[in-house]
Amino acid sequence: MIKWVMAASAATTAGTQFSWAAAPAAPAKGYGTDPDLIKKYAAGDCWPLSLSPAEKATATVLCDTIIPADEKGPSASSLKVPDFIDEWVSAPYPGHERDRVIIRDGLAWVDAESQRRFQNEFSSLVVRQRHAICDDICHLPDAKPELRPAARFFARFRDLCASGYYTTPAGMKDIGYVGNVALEKFEGPPPEVLKKLGLA
C-alpha cells in the first residue's frame, strides 16, 4: 500500500548532536497502540511537558521570529506552536530525546549569545538584534565552523516550528490549503491552474 499525504514531507533531521549535555526527560509512556482517535488532544495530554519557563520564553520569541504574523496568517506563538515544540521534545518515542538535547542546548546557546552580544536575553532583544543572531545560523552551509551546531539547531527548530504551524487550521489557510470540507462534486483543477501549467 502507499502512504498518501507525503508529498512535501521529507523533513530533514539535524544530524550531529551538540556537545553540551542536557538532563534526560522523565520516563513516560506513549499513547499506546489503541488511542482514542476522536478526541482532540492538546500538548501535555499524553505525557508531561518539560521545557522550563525560560526555555519556553526563548522558544516563543524564536518561533515568532521564524513565523511572524503577516497579512496571510497569525504568528506561530498565537497558534501555540511553542507548546507543540515542548510536546515534541518531551515525547517518549525514539529520536525525540535527541531533539530534546538539540533544542534545549540550542535555546541555551541563543540566550548566551544574546547576553554576549547585547547583554540581554533573547526574548528582550529588539528585532534587529534578534535578526543579527539568526542571520549567522539560519543556513548551515554559510555558518562559520564554530556556529555549525547552532545552525543545526536552527534548522531543526525551524522545521518543527513549520510543522507545528502549518498543521493548524489558521496555518493551513496561510499556506493555501483549502480542503478538509465535504463537497458535492470533485471537479479537478480550475481553469486558471490548468492555464498556469500549460494544460488549458
Binding site: L140, A162, Y165
Partner: peptide, 26 residues
C-alpha cells in the same frame, strides 16, 4: 500537490530557500 498539511509541511526547505526565516520564509 496540495494535500492536507501534515508533520513535515514547510520543513526541509533549507536547501531550496537558503535558510530564510521570517516573512520571507512564509
Amino acid at each position: 500537490g496540495r494535500q492536507m498539511p501534515g508533520f513535515g509541511t514547510g520543513a526541509g526547505l533549507e536547501n531550496i530557500t537558503r535558510g530564510s526565516y521570517g516573512r520571507k520564509f512564509k
